[in-house]
Protein backbone atom coordinates (compact mmCIF):
# COMPACT_ATOMS: atom_id res chain seq x y z
CA UNK A 1 0.00 0.00 0.00
CA UNK A 2 1.19 3.50 -0.60
CA UNK A 3 1.00 5.85 2.33
CA UNK A 4 0.01 9.26 1.04
CA UNK A 5 1.66 12.50 2.12
CA UNK A 6 -1.10 13.28 4.60
CA UNK A 7 -0.19 10.13 6.49
CA UNK A 8 -3.34 8.34 5.33
CA UNK A 9 -2.83 4.68 4.64
CA UNK A 10 -4.89 4.26 1.53
CA UNK A 11 -7.44 6.49 -0.08
CA UNK A 12 -7.75 3.86 -2.79
CA UNK A 13 -9.05 1.36 -0.27
CA UNK A 14 -11.58 3.86 1.02
CA UNK A 15 -12.87 4.57 -2.45
CA UNK A 16 -13.03 0.87 -3.22
CA UNK A 17 -15.01 0.07 -0.07
CA UNK A 18 -17.40 2.92 -0.84
CA UNK A 19 -17.92 1.57 -4.33
CA UNK A 20 -18.53 -1.88 -2.84
CA UNK A 21 -21.26 -0.44 -0.63
CA UNK A 22 -22.94 1.29 -3.57
CA UNK A 23 -22.89 -1.92 -5.57
CA UNK A 24 -24.06 -4.10 -2.68
CA UNK A 25 -26.90 -1.65 -2.06
CA UNK A 26 -27.92 -1.75 -5.71
CA UNK A 27 -27.78 -5.55 -5.63
CA UNK A 28 -30.06 -5.64 -2.59
CA UNK A 29 -32.54 -3.30 -4.29
CA UNK A 30 -32.50 -5.51 -7.39
CA UNK A 31 -32.97 -8.71 -5.37
CA UNK A 32 -35.81 -7.04 -3.46
CA UNK A 33 -37.57 -6.26 -6.70
CA UNK A 34 -37.47 -9.95 -7.61
CA UNK A 35 -39.28 -11.07 -4.45
CA UNK A 36 -42.73 -12.20 -5.30
CA UNK A 37 -45.05 -9.92 -3.34
CA UNK A 38 -47.59 -12.16 -1.67
CA UNK A 39 -50.97 -10.61 -1.07
CA UNK A 40 -51.18 -9.30 2.45
CA UNK A 41 -53.42 -7.07 4.49
CA UNK A 42 -50.47 -5.05 5.73
CA UNK A 43 -50.10 -3.38 2.37
CA UNK A 44 -46.36 -3.92 2.73
CA UNK A 45 -44.87 -6.82 0.85
CA UNK A 46 -41.60 -8.61 1.49
CA UNK A 47 -39.93 -6.47 -1.19
CA UNK A 48 -40.25 -3.09 0.54
CA UNK A 49 -37.54 -3.41 3.16
CA UNK A 50 -34.88 -4.73 0.78
CA UNK A 51 -35.63 -1.68 -1.37
CA UNK A 52 -35.28 0.73 1.54
CA UNK A 53 -32.24 -0.90 3.08
CA UNK A 54 -30.46 -1.32 -0.27
CA UNK A 55 -31.10 2.31 -1.17
CA UNK A 56 -29.81 3.41 2.20
CA UNK A 57 -26.65 1.37 1.80
CA UNK A 58 -26.00 2.81 -1.67
CA UNK A 59 -26.61 6.33 -0.44
CA UNK A 60 -24.13 5.95 2.42
CA UNK A 61 -21.69 4.41 -0.05
CA UNK A 62 -22.04 7.51 -2.22
CA UNK A 63 -21.42 9.82 0.72
CA UNK A 64 -18.35 7.86 1.79
CA UNK A 65 -17.14 7.71 -1.82
CA UNK A 66 -17.41 11.49 -2.08
CA UNK A 67 -15.44 11.81 1.15
CA UNK A 68 -12.78 9.40 -0.11
CA UNK A 69 -12.30 11.43 -3.28
CA UNK A 70 -12.29 14.71 -1.38
CA UNK A 71 -9.56 14.35 1.16
CA UNK A 72 -10.46 10.95 2.56
CA UNK A 73 -12.93 9.67 5.11
CA UNK A 74 -13.56 12.01 8.01
CA UNK A 75 -12.39 11.55 11.57
CA UNK A 76 -10.08 8.64 10.85
CA UNK A 77 -7.89 7.72 13.81
CA UNK A 78 -4.29 8.66 13.28
CA UNK A 79 -2.26 6.36 15.48
CA UNK A 80 0.90 4.45 14.79
CA UNK A 81 -0.86 1.24 13.84
CA UNK A 82 -2.34 2.81 10.72
CA UNK A 83 1.17 3.56 9.46
CA UNK A 84 2.36 -0.02 9.62
CA UNK A 85 3.11 -1.94 6.48
CA UNK A 86 0.82 -4.87 6.03
CA UNK A 87 2.20 -8.34 6.63
CA UNK A 88 0.35 -10.11 3.83
CA UNK A 89 2.22 -13.33 4.44
CA UNK A 90 0.65 -13.63 7.89
CA UNK A 91 -2.72 -12.73 6.42
CA UNK A 92 -2.32 -15.44 3.79
CA UNK A 93 -1.23 -18.09 6.28
CA UNK A 94 -4.20 -17.45 8.53
CA UNK A 95 -6.60 -17.46 5.60
CA UNK A 96 -5.06 -20.70 4.43
CA UNK A 97 -5.46 -22.17 7.92
CA UNK A 98 -9.16 -21.32 8.10
CA UNK A 99 -9.91 -22.50 4.56
CA UNK A 100 -7.94 -25.71 5.04
CA UNK A 101 -9.85 -26.40 8.23
CA UNK A 102 -13.08 -25.90 6.31
CA UNK A 103 -12.06 -28.49 3.74
CA UNK A 104 -10.63 -30.96 6.22
CA UNK A 105 -13.07 -30.95 9.11
CA UNK A 106 -15.70 -33.17 7.51
CA UNK A 107 -13.14 -35.53 6.03
CA UNK A 108 -10.09 -35.81 8.25
CA UNK A 109 -12.15 -35.10 11.34
CA UNK A 110 -12.45 -32.36 13.90
CA UNK A 111 -9.34 -33.20 15.91
CA UNK A 112 -6.93 -33.27 12.99
CA UNK A 113 -8.43 -30.24 11.28
CA UNK A 114 -8.39 -28.18 14.47
CA UNK A 115 -4.84 -29.18 15.30
CA UNK A 116 -3.67 -28.06 11.87
CA UNK A 117 -5.65 -24.86 12.17
CA UNK A 118 -3.96 -24.12 15.48
CA UNK A 119 -0.45 -24.84 14.29
CA UNK A 120 -0.84 -22.83 11.08
CA UNK A 121 -2.25 -19.79 12.83
CA UNK A 122 0.51 -19.90 15.41
CA UNK A 123 2.94 -20.02 12.48
CA UNK A 124 1.17 -17.03 10.93
CA UNK A 125 1.81 -15.11 14.13
CA UNK A 126 5.48 -16.00 13.94
CA UNK A 127 5.73 -19.11 16.09
CA UNK A 128 8.74 -21.22 15.14
CA UNK A 129 7.92 -24.29 17.20
CA UNK A 130 5.38 -26.29 15.20
CA UNK A 131 5.86 -29.39 17.37
CA UNK A 132 4.94 -27.58 20.56
CA UNK A 133 2.02 -25.91 18.80
CA UNK A 134 0.65 -29.24 17.64
CA UNK A 135 0.84 -30.69 21.14
CA UNK A 136 -1.04 -27.71 22.58
CA UNK A 137 -3.56 -27.98 19.76
CA UNK A 138 -4.25 -31.60 20.64
CA UNK A 139 -4.57 -30.70 24.31
CA UNK A 140 -7.39 -28.36 23.32
CA UNK A 141 -9.12 -30.27 20.54
CA UNK A 142 -9.21 -33.76 22.05
CA UNK A 143 -11.07 -32.80 25.26
CA UNK A 144 -13.41 -30.54 23.30
CA UNK A 145 -14.17 -33.40 20.94
CA UNK A 146 -15.08 -35.72 23.80
CA UNK A 147 -17.13 -33.13 25.65
CA UNK A 148 -19.20 -32.65 22.54
CA UNK A 149 -19.60 -36.20 21.36
CA UNK A 150 -19.67 -38.15 24.63
CA UNK A 151 -20.87 -35.57 27.11
CA UNK A 152 -23.48 -33.74 25.10
CA UNK A 153 -24.32 -36.41 22.54
CA UNK A 154 -23.62 -34.02 19.69
CA UNK A 155 -21.78 -34.98 16.58
CA UNK A 156 -18.40 -33.76 15.50
CA UNK A 157 -16.77 -35.67 12.68
CA UNK A 158 -14.23 -38.19 13.96
CA UNK A 159 -12.69 -38.54 10.52
CA UNK A 160 -9.49 -40.52 10.30
CA UNK A 161 -9.38 -41.13 14.03
CA UNK A 162 -12.39 -43.40 14.35
CA UNK A 163 -12.64 -43.89 18.08
CA UNK A 164 -15.66 -41.62 18.25
CA UNK A 165 -17.97 -44.05 16.46
Amino acid sequence: MNPSSSGRPSLGGEALLSLGMVLLGAFVVWQGSLVKAAASYSGIGPGLFPGLIGSGLSLIGLVLGWEALNGGWRAMPDDETTHQDADWRAFGLISLAVLLHMLLVGWAGFIIASALLYALIARGFGSTRPGRDLVIALLISVPVFFIFTRGLGLNLPAGWLTWGA
Partner: peptide, 15 residues
Protein backbone atom coordinates in the same frame (compact mmCIF):
# COMPACT_ATOMS: atom_id res chain seq x y z
CA UNK B 1 -11.34 -29.19 34.12
CA UNK B 2 -14.66 -29.06 35.88
CA UNK B 3 -16.67 -29.71 32.77
CA UNK B 4 -15.20 -33.16 32.24
CA UNK B 5 -16.37 -34.21 35.67
CA UNK B 6 -19.82 -32.97 34.93
CA UNK B 7 -19.94 -34.73 31.62
CA UNK B 8 -18.65 -37.94 33.12
CA UNK B 9 -21.46 -37.84 35.62
CA UNK B 10 -23.83 -37.13 32.80
CA UNK B 11 -22.47 -39.99 30.75
CA UNK B 12 -22.95 -42.24 33.74
CA UNK B 13 -26.54 -41.10 34.09
CA UNK B 14 -27.14 -41.76 30.43
CA UNK B 15 -25.58 -45.18 30.60
Amino acid sequence: MKITQATRRLAAALA
